[in-house]
């Protein structure tokens, strides 16, 4: 009988992804209701030290695969190891973070384990021992509630939605996993050097739209982002115009984000953009047009010329920070 919760701990180069602790916090909560153990699967090179990061998350067991051979994410190999952890732990719930890696490994694991999977969940409840999930569909234009009927219920959670909370202190038992053979090597990982946080993980995002006037003006959103420690986003219009890279696009055909603060500069608020960001906790809109649809979802708005408002904001925030 499957019981308990298993967390897939995401790491790259021996550094734990912070959202993995959000998954662990959720796992600890679920364990209280459904019983069983809370365990963590840690897979990667130099990853054994990461188990200590879960000490304050009520973890009973760590399933560990630490080998130099696992220094790059490899979907097939990582999935095989995660599946082995599942067969050892026999959990009823497996939680993965819906990151680039999580979006890749979750359906692989679900398929190989014959399990149902709900991706990018933003709400989780337990009713009669079964997990009830809320997740956005149509990029957030609607919310779907569903139940996973397979014995193993797999869910991936949207980063930055479930709070993480350290509590207590445990000394989990560590169980080593058998590492299988390599099939399709990741030949290279190139890192883009960026001082800014990743869009989908950022707690603050500053986005620019067509109102920015041209690619040469985006230093303004970048500067505002930098004084706030924020990520930089863009609307589809400016990405399609080639002003900004597509990796920055927020919306139904880009990234769906839920930061604590989303600042929209010169974005009118096309429905497909609103879909991708309206679940942000606080939304600020700066736009010349008082009738722009962005003001309908904005928590706070300034009607005005962003070329005057944004520099003033940068100055005010700098003054506060100093």
């Amino acid at each position: 009988m499957a019981q308990g919760v298993l967390i897939f701990a995401e790491q790259r180069e021996g550094v734990l992804k912070p959202s993995s602790l959000e998954a662990a916090t959720l796992g600890r909560e679920l364990k209280k209701e459904i019983g069983g153990e809370l365990s963590v699967a840690i897979i990667g090179a130099n990853s054994s030290s990461l188990s200590s990061e879960f000490k304050q998350y009520g973890v009973d067991k760590v399933y560990l695969a630490d080998s130099e051979e696992l220094n790059q994410y490899d979907g097939e190999r990582y999935t095989a190891l995660l599946a082995e952890a599942v067969s050892k732990a026999q959990p009823s719930v497996l939680i993965i973070v819906a990151s680039a890696m999580g979006k890749d490994i979750a359906p692989r694991a679900a398929s190989s384990l014959g399990a149902g999977l709900a991706t990018d969940c933003t709400g989780v409840k337990v009713i009669d021992g079964k997990i009830i999930i809320t997740r956005p569909v149509y990029a957030g234009k609607a919310l779907i509630k569903l139940r996973i009927d397979s014995e193993l219920q797999i869910l991936s959670i949207r980063p930055n939605v479930f709070p993480k909370k350290a509590e207590g202190d445990t000394d989990p038992e560590v169980i080593e996993l058998q590492i299988g053979e390599k099939k399709n090597p990741v030949s290279e990982v190139q890192h883009v050097k960026s001082e800014r946080p990743e869009l989908t993980e950022a707690s603050i995002i500053v986005s620019g739209g067509r109102g920015m006037g041209g690619p040469e003006n985006f230093h303004l959103t970048e500067e505002l982002a930098d004084v706030l420690g924020a990520a930089v986003g863009a609307s589809r219009a400016v990405v399609d115009a080639g002003w900004r890279p597509h990796t920055e696009q927020v919306g139904q055909t880009g990234k769906t984000v839920s930061p604590n603060l989303y600042i929209a500069c010169g974005i009118s608020g096309a429905i497909q953009h609103l879909a991708g960001m309206s679940s942000s906790k606080v939304i600020v809109a700066i736009n010349k047009d008082a009738d722009a649809p962005i003001f309908k979802v904005a928590t706070y708005g300034i009607v005005g010329d962003l070329f005057e408002v944004v520099p003033k904001m940068i100055k005010e925030i700098k003054a506060l920070n100093s």
């Binding site: 399990a115 149902g116 999977l117 709900a118 009830i132 956005p136 569909v137 957030g140 234009k141 609607a142 919310l143 779907i144 509630k145 569903l146 139940r147 996973i148 009927d149 397979s150 309206s278 679940s279 939304i283 809109a285 008082a290 003001f295 309908k296 979802v297 904005a298 928590t299 706070y300 708005g301 300034i302 009607v303």
Partner: peptide
């Protein structure tokens, strides 16, 4: 493997404020 229980519109945003 999944049962859809309901589909809902997201809760309406509280009215914002023009600063």
């Amino acid at each position: 493997k999944l049962t859809i229980l309901s589909l809902e519109l997201p809760p309406p945003k509280p009215k914002g404020r023009i600063v």
